[in-house]
């Protein structure tokens, strides 16, 4: 990291630095929060009690990670309620992979989705281990500590689901549907701001490189399970060096979302509004004091 200068404390950043850090944090926080929100829909609906607990536990982990990232966004004065419960849904920056709804009983989808997501998350977190922004750097290790289980869980399930034709076909159907959305995990929030994130060393790998790494891991693995990405609605120019992937209409990162996201947001903020809340109660210590 020698060439890059360490960034200052939150309050001392320039407007441009602050914007870059915030974009990076919203990428992370919104992904974790929304993926957990969707995972939670499987509670009491997963195939067995054991898989239910394991998946709910993963959802809890991801919510915990979202909490760590939203907490850093509060360094500039925003309250948790403003970042989550009161934020306009059109301002969220999560990838559209995590907001898509599940078909009832289609267990192959969450299994595959969590695999695609968790491999990407691992790559993205590793690119933050040497971040020039100390507040991000300091929290990465704690999160990575919980990620091995997530990937192992997803891979173990995938391997078993792909052992038989019928269940493999369901995984394949999920793959055809989800793969283009998974590519949005590496889409820019804004080209110029993402370049700044790289230039400032907030992240040590550009999005394109991370996407390439992700494809190098995910594609051969899925193929080894007898799956094929040929039928996935892939961009025409399947070239990892190409910046402009032909992504789905809704990318998420740039604040374009599917209608399903607006329904989901309406849903999870329902109680907050119904109860006339104006703030969110905190029951846990500030992560800085943990």
């Amino acid at each position: 990291m020698a060439a890059v200068e360490e960034l200052s404390e939150p309050g001392e950043l320039t407007a441009e630095e602050r914007e870059a850090v915030q974009h990076q944090l919203f990428r992370l926080a919104d992904d974790e929060f929304v993926v957990a929100e969707r995972y939670t829909e499987w509670q009491v609906k997963a195939p067995t009690l054991e898989s239910d607990l394991a998946f709910s536990n993963i959802a809890q982990d991801e919510l915990g990670h979202a909490r760590l990232w939203y907490d850093l966004l509060q360094d500039w004065g925003a309250e948790e309620s403003e970042l989550i419960w009161e934020r306009d849904p059109s301002e969220w920056r999560h990838s559209t992979l995590v907001e898509l709804p599940f078909d009832e009983g289609d267990w192959a989808d969450p299994v595959l989705r969590s695999y695609l997501y968790d491999v990407a998350e691992d790559i993205q977190l590793r690119a933050l281990q040497d971040s020039s922004y100390p507040r991000i750097r300091d929290r990465v290790g704690k999160i990575l500590g919980e990620e091995d289980y997530h990937r192992e869980h997803a891979a173990n399930w995938l391997e078993r689901l792909c052992e038989e034709d019928e269940s493999r076909e369901r995984v394949q159907a999920a793959l055809d549907r989800l793969f283009p959305y998974a590519l949005t995990l590496f889409a820019p929030t804004d080209e110029e701001v993402e370049d700044r994130i790289d230039d400032l060393g907030i992240r040590t790998e550009p999005l394109v490189t991370m996407r390439e790494e992700w494809l190098d891991e995910v594609v051969p693995y899925l193929e080894s399970l007898g799956l094929s990405i040929d039928d996935a609605e892939l961009p025409e120019q399947y070239d990892v060096h190409h910046n402009q992937f032909d992504l789905p209409d809704a990318v998420g990162r740039d604040q374009s979302h599917t209608d399903d996201w607006y329904d989901l947001q309406e849903d999870f903020t329902h109680s907050y509004r119904e109860l006339g809340r104006t703030s969110a109660e905190r029951i846990m210590k500030d992560p800085d004091d943990e």
């Binding site: 067995t48 009690l49 054991e50 898989s51 607990l53 394991a54 536990n57 289980y149 192992e152 869980h153 173990n156 078993r160």
Partner: peptide, 20 residues
């Protein structure tokens, strides 16, 4: 105990169910 099809899944489930 846990219900699981094999040892690997049993360990994965036990970790959450009995170790968390």
């Amino acid at each position: 105990n846990v219900h699981a099809p094999d040892r690997e899944m049993a360990l994965l489930f036990a970790e959450v169910q009995h170790g968390r």
